[in-house]
């Protein structure tokens, strides 16, 4: 048994547990007769369980990336369909945290990317934004300069440091107020996945800035 099998099988078990936790919390929160848990606490638990889940996926993908086992499957995707699923998957936790999560894009917009990998990047970015947003998280997508740009913004206090910041072109790590180490790993993951998307002329990148549409931090994925 090699390590990637061990990792995969452990992750399988952990995800089963996380699934049970998440769904039980869902029931608890939805049940008006629940007097055990304070709904706010239950929501926070749910939020952390979902973060643990996206971290696990990130971990497995990073491991594979390091071992050149990660397969990229780039296909043409309808971006509206794609974002609607990402939002659906994260909606419950955001609702529970009293955050509005919405997306905006042209229904006919299409792009070329690996839906599963990009979804895992967006999941962990949204997970991060949940920590900083005051009331809103907004996803959007557009065609700009021959790239598909997908944005995740919040109305929190924004990124600190020199902005805008392109990744991976810079050696200066971006800092997000709370937990720099965790943010850095997330950004490393995001920019590695972005770079796997390339055409002969262009390569995918990540950009951080503040105050795009909302007042807070704005994470951008530029995909060729």
């Amino acid at each position: 048994m090699d390590f990637s099998d061990i990792l995969a099988s452990s992750i399988h078990d952990i995800k089963n547990s996380l699934g049970l936790i998440l769904n039980s919390l869902d029931d608890l929160i939805a049940n008006p007769e629940n007097h055990i848990a304070n709904p706010r606490q239950a929501s926070l638990l749910q939020h952390e369980a979902q973060r643990a889940n996206s971290n696990l996926i990130q971990l497995l993908n990073l491991y594979k990336l390091g071992n050149e086992q990660l397969v990229v499957q780039i296909a043409e995707q309808n971006v509206d369909d794609f974002l609607s699923e990402v939002v659906a998957d994260n909606q419950a936790v955001c609702n529970a945290l009293n955050l509005s999560l919405t997306y905006a894009c042209d229904p006919s917009l299409t792009g070329y990317f690996d839906a599963e990998l990009i979804q895992s990047v967006l999941d962990s970015t949204i997970g991060n934004a949940r920590r900083y947003a005051h009331t809103r998280i907004l996803l959007s997508a557009d065609n700009e300069a021959g790239y598909l740009v997908i944005r995740v913004e919040d109305d929190g206090s924004g990124f600190s440091g020199k902005l805008p910041l392109w990744l991976p072109d810079t050696s200066e790590p971006a800092q997000n107020a709370g937990n720099p180490a965790r943010t850095r790993l997330g950004l490393y993951f995001a920019s590695s996945i972005a770079q796997l998307h390339k055409t002969p002329e262009r390569t995918g990148r990540v950009r951080l800035k503040n105050s795009h549409i909302l007042s807070g931090g704005c994470f951008e994925l530029w995909l060729p």
Binding site: I11, K15, N16, L18, G19, L22, L60, Q73, Q91
Partner: peptide
């Protein structure tokens, strides 16, 4: 599936399912 699904897709199986769903999934998804 619990792991992500790409290995299965790339494994070149003769019969592919209509869709893969990664665990854990929410009601909304």
């Amino acid at each position: 599936t619990a792991e992500n699904t790409r290995e299965m897709v790339m494994g070149a199986v003769e019969y592919a399912p209509d869709n893969y769903l990664a665990k854990p999934f929410t009601k909304d998804l």
